[in-house]
């Protein structure tokens, strides 16, 4: 059986919001080290890989490996019923056909309980292979989200060009073109505001802004984002 409690439901709310546009149904693979999810989007062009470590929960208990088939649209709707600061407990019994969620307000005067029916999801064993990337860019996640949103007004694709001292995001469409150049900054007060470019060799690659905008939804989860690029390898965000 699985029993896991998060101090703030907002963590799972943000995760589900970031994933739900890409993944319809997928397994939460639960074991004693945590809860993992690997799933390609329905168009089979992007992989979502998520790991919620057991240490992030208190308590966390998982007696044996179980795969919980989740419909993310349903889970997203249920998570909307949770207050951001609510305690969240998720439970699944042996051979469970439901995932139980309990939201408890901070002063314990409101307790909501929901059961979501589990599904059988055919699972491929997928992951992101270890690769030495030509360029690794670290930047504030809000800045990345804004760049993707701004350049969407011009084109459905963006070309990311990483050189020694700058990263250029370029969008070119029927009605015009636009570009945003981001330069590394070292001496910033907040680590999240840092921009770094680590380069083995310059790269210039094009990607679908639709997907980058989906990925950027995860920017509420962390202050900074890392983009790893190489020729002939998927962009890792």
């Amino acid at each position: 059986m699985l029993e896991a409690r998060l101090p703030s439901a907002v963590t799972l709310k943000k995760i589900i919001d970031a994933v739900k546009e890409l993944v319809q149904d997928a397994n939460f693979d639960c074991n004693d080290s945590g809860i993992a999810l690997q799933a390609m989007d329905s168009s089979h062009v992007a992989l979502v890989a998520l790991l919620m470590r057991a240490e992030g929960f208190d308590p966390y208990r998982c007696d044996r490996n179980i795969a919980l088939g989740i419909n993310f649209a349903t889970l997203a709707k249920v998570m909307k019923c949770a207050g951001n600061d609510d305690n969240l407990t998720i439970k699944a019994g042996e051979d469970a056909d439901v995932l139980s969620l309990m939201f408890e307000s901070t002063n314990s005067d409101r307790i909501s309980e929901f059961d979501i029916k589990l599904m059988d999801v055919d699972a491929d064993h997928l992951g992101i292979p270890e690769t030495d990337y030509s360029a690794t860019i670290k930047m504030p996640s809000a800045e990345f989200q804004r760049i993707c949103r701004d350049l969407s007004v011009m084109s459905e694709t963006v070309t990311i060009e990483a050189v020694k001292d700058a990263v250029k995001f370029i969008a070119s469409g029927d009605t015009g073109s636009g570009s945003i150049t981001v330069k590394p900054n070292q001496a910033v007060d907040k680590k999240d505001m840092e921009v770094t470019v680590t380069l083995q060799e310059p790269v210039k690659l094009a990607f679908s802004l639709k997907y980058l905008n989906h990925f950027a939804k995860a920017s509420t989860l962390a202050g900074s984002v890392t983009l790893s690029l190489s020729d002939d390898v998927p962009l890792m965000i």
């Binding site: 690997q38 390609m40 168009s43 089979h44 491929d124 064993h125 997928l126 992951g127 992101i128 292979p129």
Partner: peptide, 14 residues
């Protein structure tokens, strides 16, 4: 479609 198959195989190698 070729790219989709290639991507799936790429992710399966992890």
């Amino acid at each position: 479609v070729c790219r989709q198959v290639w991507l799936t195989r790429y992710f399966e190698t992890a």
